[in-house]
Nucleic acid binder design. Sequence first.
DNA 1: ATGGATCATAGATCTTTGTCCGCC
DNA 2: AGGCGGACTTTGATCTATGATCCA
Length: 964
Amino acid sequence: MARGGLSSARGRVRRRPPARRQDDTDDEIPEVYREMLAEADARAANQQDIEDRPIKRRRVGERRTPPATPVTAVKEAEPAPASRKDDDNADKQVQTVYDLDASDDDSDMEWEEVEIHQPSSAHPAQAGDSDEPIQITLNEAIDKPRKAVVARRKPASAAEKKLRLDIHKVHVLCLLSHVHLRNLWCNDEEVQKFLKQMLSKQTIAFLNPKESMSQFTRSTTFIDGLKQASEAFSRRFKETILREAETITSKEDFRKQAKTLQGSRDFGAQLFCALLRSVSVETRLVCSLQPLPFSGVAKGMTPVKQKPEYIVISSDDHASSSDDVTRSRPQTPPKARRLGQPQFSESIPRQSPPSRHIGASRNLQTSPYPVFWVEAFNQAVQKWIPVDPLVTKSVAKASKFEPPAGDRYNGMSYVVAFEEDASARDVTQRYAKAYNAKTRKNRVESTKDGENWWTNTMKFFEKPFMEDRDQLEISELTAKTAAEPMPKNIQDFKDHPIYALERHLRRNEVIHPKRVIGHVSLSKSGSKKDALEPVYRRADVHVVRSADGWYRLGRDIKMGEQPLKRVKAVATARNDQEDRDGDLAAETPMYAFHQTELYQPPPVVKGKVPKNAYGNLDVYVPSMVPPGAFHLKHPDAARAARLLGIDYADAVTGFEFKGRHGTAVFNGIVAATQYREALEEVIKCIEEERIQEELDRRSAEALRLWKHFLLKLRIAEKVKSYTIEGEEEENQQDEKEHEMGDVDVAETGGGFLPDSDQKIAEPTSLAQSTARDESLTGNDEQARVTQSIPDSDDAFGGGGFLPEPVGGADSVSSNPVLAAGASPRPKKTAKTQPRYTLVVVPNDQRKDETAPAPGSSVGASASVNQQCEVLRDQHERSPNRVETSAIAEGSSEAAPIMIESSAEGTSKSASVEVLSRPPSAAHSRAQSPQHIPSDDDDSNLEQRSLLSHDPEDEDAEPEWLLSD
DNA sequence: ATGGATCATAGATCTTTGTCCGCC
DNA sequence: AGGCGGACTTTGATCTATGATCCA
């Protein structure tokens, strides 16, 4: 085994790729090809692994030469083993290993795993020459690599676990549905009529014993009848073991197949069910579902074998010769069809080579336990009797149905019995010998909320009315489970519903009182060491919490209660300090529920709410509200209380953990009960006020936009009149320039705005302003103005102003002045047309100040009601915003967009109404004296707006520079 | 050969009322 | 100069479940 490290390392390097691909031989492969191979492999699978490997190998080889220090020795050791393994093992084996691995990681691991052995063997060889000390170092080194290298299946991630569980559930549902269907087919009269022929009259008579007989006789007679029927059926039915899935997809198929009296065991059991039903025996079709497991790795997973007989979607396909099929497409296709096969790994296809070996012997691989059987109702004793005519050939022997844990092809986790009326019951407990200890752990009930899921699932198959015998059966099953013997090994105690061991207790669990109800021996025979571990009742296991923990649930430790348990305190910064100080806070006393009582908060005295050290009040649960107080969960509650001068406390309802700090979560206030109405009234007023403010703000905004629109229209008209006189050529040129020359247009827009402030209403003033612009900026400006007009028309003509602001303005500003002044600006900044908006802004401010209330135009009023509702919604949704912050946010984000779209939404017809208004507004503006400051504002605004536009509008920047 | 002991790892759980810096 | 607001940390220790290995 031990080889020269160098040679082995090389060999390994070269052989590695071959191991992956059968085609490659062991001969030396030039590095070029090696790399190519690596690339090819990388494409197919995990790149990283492959790339890493070559590097590793080379490195190893290089280091190989120098004598082994402990470290190098380790590294050397790694490669060597792999090579050795390749040499020693047949290619197939290597491949098999890879195939078995679910992922490339695994394969990588495997490879390294091989190395593990190598170091031990290789090093001794080297070390043997030198000294023992060297050997020692080797051993140390070996241990380390081993840990790092050992191939270990990584625990399933949370997502994979969930996926597995989901698959499991879906599979269970599918299987249930399948059995349900087959059960219905068993009621088919034609099939029953055909099958009935095989029973002698005597058997039929046995199966229907006369009432006159004694109960005992009736029972035994009935069972005899079952035996006869079972015998007769197994004589006539020919069980065929086929590997391909059964293709019975309809009742017709079922009938046809029934008349051949051959098929899979499953099908046979179904026919037997139909047979018994044909002679008026109440018969259940019973199936032990074989779903994919949701946890663990199926034991039988590695050597993939199929057991067609057990797949519920089943096995017989008489149409195609199963053998041929199997040969032609060995493993994969059947796998896909085998719903019962426990395969989670994606590497299933890879497993085909190994499974081939097994394939030969597979014919013999059938579980000696059935998946389908029947239960016949014994009227005499009111019990269901299991009958399996084909596999176990048993009658009334429930214990014969559960396969041992080692059975790779049959696992019993859900046994469901379907009755003639299509109802079904979970009868697993009748057949499982260790339901609590083992079976249950394979069922969804052992998962979170799994019991509900299963209950709800089976509810679908429940009978509408339970009969006495149903109750009887249920209690019988329950009793059987309750009588289940105590487990004999430790692991079966884990999560056992009846028994508990101290070692399995969680941190926050305690056994109290400590009543020992049995012992389990640790050593197998128990004779030698005689180590016995006490067993307790699960019912005596209590969940314990610290006093603080109970407080957060609104409970208090009763006076004089002693902790049932002490746990090591969690190390927090604070605790650390305490520890340093005095080593005392190392343990936290824990109490059980029964040691606690409902927390009684100190009452309100004279309207004063008690507060904690932080000046607020803990209200983790409703019961923590002090007597005489109430919890008002409104974001404005604190403000209302302050307005009223009422004593209150902020309510802390929980904590949220951001970063490393837990911060209190406030939700409303706690105040004395007598102030409830007053507070609510104030809050109502605050809300209404806020809504009204928002409405005012919106109508002001609408007016502003209309005014803006109107102004533009007039400008457009004016300019058009100019263009008529001018040459058309210029216009055309302008149009060409238009696409590129937006900057200039904006400039002009800015230019004539100040004028518009003063004399909006009058066309002449517009004309003057434009004229002035021309004079200021030059002749070109005129043409540019004309260009700008179409733009404005597009924007405003397309949509209406009102709709958008309604939906868009999320944040409501309570202060009208602030709202009017601050919010419009940002909106404009975000706008796509900064030029015009910039000009108009100052006007808006003035307008808001001067004529806000009367300003509500006819057109705007229509939408007011809608706005109200919207506003209320918004309030409720975002209650926590402070007024100022609300303004800022609203202005910067949502508002601008809304405005723009609104502009597009309104129809031009609406402008008619507005047209009457502008003059008054214009007057008011004209009167306003704030001319100069407004200019400053304008420039600021312009900057901002343009800046904000920069990313979108390339032209904006030059424009801004010019305007500045 | 089974099950217990042990180890490694990933996910879950418990944590449970901040501080600093810059700006106005 | 003081107060305010925003940015910044995104813990991290411990428990629990699971899987693999080793050993009796």
